[in-house]
Nucleic acid binder design. Structure first.
Lengths: 218, 218
DNA sequence: CTTCATTTGCACAGTGCTGTGCAATCTCGT
DNA sequence: ACGAGATTGCACAGCACTGTGCAAATGAAG
């Protein structure tokens, strides 16, 4: 994106963005992002060429929209972090009971599981940005806070400190996404199962967990 | 390892191996493997050069012991799989109660957590051998079998099918290793906490889980 | 001190990726 | 059908890594 053409391209798109109609470049950019999500989910080390081809476009075109691979992945993770944070927050807003809070936010995050999965997958490779872990900390801390309250009130029972339990929460979610991916778990019931599992992992009796989640997915 | 020198080197080592005293090459080879474990734990994409330097040796020397990067990683994962399988099997041998089985094997695997962590870390990057997942399946299936029995007998309570629960088990273990690594969890108590968490995640009441594990770590 | 195994240093070819430049081409709206 | 915006095709430089060959240095053990 050093070419004069390409900066001009951006300016043009800017203009189109103020009006409601997305330019051709806009829809392509969107398509690239979407495909990149899928492709990076399959292989977190996917090259620009793989992504471009998967998007039905030439590598050079991708560089027309994103100055570098890092920028592309960056935009993607930004979007994902925003989505996850929003889902997580929406799930727990105005709820006092920690168990219900945990269940609701689990169900909410489950709706955008793919975004979350990308983040975890990228975060656990040391190379591709430990910055992801940083950007996810607000979410993790909110989660840890719920767990802390639950442990304090005795709603949750676990020998683990809240923050460690948050790690477990995160990885468990990830495990269940993989399970769905590998057809070990039906996608429809997966959300509820995930929520129940989160609760029991936190130390809520299985019966109470099942009951609570059943109530929430009325 | 195409050089004539190097095949000769191997023959020499073979000879030394039959006698009890390890040759210089043997101890270096061992050192390289150990350092590689640590290095790959830190960065699963660590290059041959990184590993060599960390082992206090030149890249060329590593190629003297392992014909390719894949061979090095292969030997490492072979060892790790063997260790994990052994620990897992030792933990559950002669035990009938699924809960105790699960707790014991968790405690046993925890002892060699680093090897296990390497395997999980390598397995979840699509590039570096999905073969690891394959080689781990015996262990996972043994684990799933315990879970299946527990669910059947009502010792465990979970909406998840056994195999999915095994995924959760695996990732939870991983999460706790990370927690220890990040100093969120004291290393001494980590094993017991892990065992308790495994049990509660499977749906065992927290009180019973704590009690059982306490009994085991007499 | 000699000998043999081992390690080193360097040079090299090969591969696959990133990012860039530029001219040609396509595809819209108007 | 015109022209701006977007995409393509190729060519290139650069980088990091893998594996290999060979001659020289090092080390240990006799």
């Amino acid at each position: 994106m050093t070419t004069g053409q390409e900066v001009a391209r951006r300016a043009g798109r800017m203009a189109a963005m103020t009006t409601g109609n997305p330019s051709r470049a806009d829809v392509n950019r969107r398509r690239i992002l979407d495909v990149a999500l899928a492709e990076l989910l399959r292989d977190p080390d996917a090259s620009m060429d793989q992504i471009a081809r998967a998007a039905g476009v030439v590598r050079r075109t991708v560089y027309g929209h994103f100055p570098s691979r890092e920028a592309l992945v960056g935009t993607l993770t930004d979007e994902a972090v925003a989505a996850v944070a929003a889902a997580h927050a929406a799930g727990r807003e105005g709820v006092v009971d920690p168990a219900e809070s945990l269940a609701r936010s689990t169900l909410a995050v489950w709706e955008i599981a793919d975004r979350y999965r990308l983040l975890v997958a990228l975060a656990q490779r040391s190379v591709t940005m430990q910055g992801i872990r940083e950007r996810l900390t607000p979410v993790r801390e909110a989660c840890a806070e719920i767990l802390r309250r639950g442990l304090e009130q005795g709603v949750f029972a676990s020998p683990l400190p809240p923050y460690a339990l948050a790690y477990v929460h995160e990885q468990t979610l990830f495990a269940l996404m993989e399970a769905v991916n590998d057809d070990l778990l039906a996608a429809e019931e997966a959300g509820s199962s995930a929520a129940v599992t989160m609760l029991t992992a936190a130390g809520v009796p299985a019966s109470r967990a099942t009951e609570l989640v059943a109530k929430l997915s009325d």
